[in-house]
Design a protein around this nucleic acid. Structure first.
Length: 292
DNA sequence: ATCGAACCTCCAAT
DNA sequence: AATTGGAGGTTCG
């Protein structure tokens, strides 16, 4: 048994690791049992197919991983957690709004993640007409059925499957796992990706409109799912997913009936209202309402 | 163009 | 104990 490698990130801005990892953006993180009391809770998950364990103590995030990843794990974690986001500017855009001000005070340090685009896409196709425990379950099942086996000093684990690995499963395989009507969407997305019809990993960096158009062309992906993928994996901080909760919040606090904004325009209305960090606004609004 | 209903499956609430 | 309704949405008519 090799001694685990522990690295530390010193935070220069507010960060709340626990709220961030379990805020409904990512679905494979889990808390480890019996934390050694004082040193905080450890969370286990994968970043770039590397298994890492993270915990936050005050302004430090500790990273434990297999020593073979020592060279690049810190950078990978920093990128994934978006520790460099300029929270002062982001909070500034929310400061004139009393409702948002309370949300930022309450969940200060909550961040958007920078996930793998392919995994994020499949995850949010799964989210359609679904609930969080079952999304987690489906993602775990697809990894255990089609992901690669990797081994580190903790033991064996499974990566999130690539498009060709999902092709091996096929629509029927996905149905057998319980994906239901989402099976054909995911199977089709995997075929499109593996045949080069869409290149998910090359979308990051392109314009908002271009990425949205590409994503919408995938079956099972509408405006909401596309905006989730763009926000949580493609650096589009202006993306604004409108789901049932956000719609409720907007209708209760911002856009009343007499404003005559139809549901179909709620997303663009919000992007105009909240600006280039609308995605961050969305996350704080959603988080506040969900845990209310 | 716009608007409901249907969709797999699980599970909590009758 | 069997049934119904709904879940972070999309598609089809």
């Amino acid at each position: 048994m090799v001694k685990p490698n522990i690295e530390t990130i010193r935070l220069t801005q507010p960060y709340d690791l626990k709220e961030t990892l379990y805020s409904g953006q990512a679905f494979r993180w889990r808390q480890l049992q019996s934390p050694k009391s004082t040193e905080g809770i450890w969370h286990e998950g994968l970043i770039n197919s590397i298994r890492v364990r993270l915990n936050q103590v005050d302004n430090s995030i500790n990273i434990e991983s297999d020593p073979k990843h020592k060279e690049f794990v810190v950078h990978a974690v920093e990128t994934y957690l978006r520790v460099e986001d300029d929270m002062a500017s982001i909070y500034d855009t929310m400061s004139s709004d009393q409702y948002l001000k309370r949300a930022t005070a309450q969940y200060r340090g909550l961040h958007i993640l920078r996930q793998d685009p392919w995994e994020c896409l499949i995850t949010f196709i799964c989210s359609a007409n679904n609930n969080i425990p079952r999304i987690r379950q489906l993602i775990e099942l697809i990894c255990n059925s089609a992901g690669k086996y990797l081994t580190d000093h903790y033991g064996a684990y499974r990566t999130f499957p690539t498009s060709s690995e999902i092709n091996n499963l096929g629509e029927q395989g996905l149905r057998n796992l319980g994906f239901g009507f989402r099976a054909k969407y995911i199977a089709k997305a995997a075929v499109m990706e593996s045949e080069g019809q869409i290149a998910i990993s090359e979308l990051r960096g392109k314009s908002y409109g271009e990425i949205l158009e590409s994503l919408i062309s995938i079956p099972g992906v509408g405006d909401k799912v596309a905006n989730c993928v763009m926000l949580f994996s493609m650096d589009c901080l202006e993306a604004f997913p409108v789901d049932v909760w956000i719609r409720r919040i907007l209708r209760e606090n911002y856009v009343t009936k007499k404003d005559k904004v139809p549901d179909s325009q709620l997303r663009t209305w919000s992007q105009n209202q909240f600006g280039p960090f609308a995605g961050y606004v969305n996350q704080y609004l959603f988080h506040k309402r969900r845990l209310a």
